[in-house]
Amino acid sequence: MSSFKLIVNKEKKTISADPDTPLLWVLRDILGLTGTKYACGKGLCGSCTVIVNGKSVRSCTLSVADAAQSEVITIEGLSEKGDHPIQKAWMEADVPQCGYCQPGFIMSAFDLLSKNPNPTEEEVNNVLSGNICRCGTYSRIRKAMQIAVKVGNQ
């Protein structure tokens, strides 16, 4: 066991874990931030997407040792009251079905729109195709992205 310092959702955290522990399990089992989901464990589906030092990362394949000293934003830290424009867009479009993959999609969308507030449909497709929704909410994700882009440009 080693000790690691992280800034998670703007709070300083010192945690004790084996260095190879994926950030995902640190967030979920140690810090209780369960909005970040386990679904594949191999960086294939995007359900565990978080922002590390301003970049979207699959937290299931990033070890806590490699994440040490980083600034991490999870779905819980995206906004104070769950009212980030992307979250509001997701609500307006009533996107989720089972909902399990949605925090990952929202974090991927957040990463895209932070860098590119006006993405083309192709850019949206390219970035969000890293995430899997098993229920098939994709049409509504597209709609929510259009709403979020529009709100962002107002």
Binding site: G35, I75, E76, S79, G82, Q87, M91, G99, Q102, P103
Partner: peptide, 10 residues
């Protein structure tokens, strides 16, 4: 559950 899904608390 919509709001709690999108804020990650569900």
């Amino acid at each position: 559950d919509l709001d709690n899904i999108v804020n990650g608390s569900v």
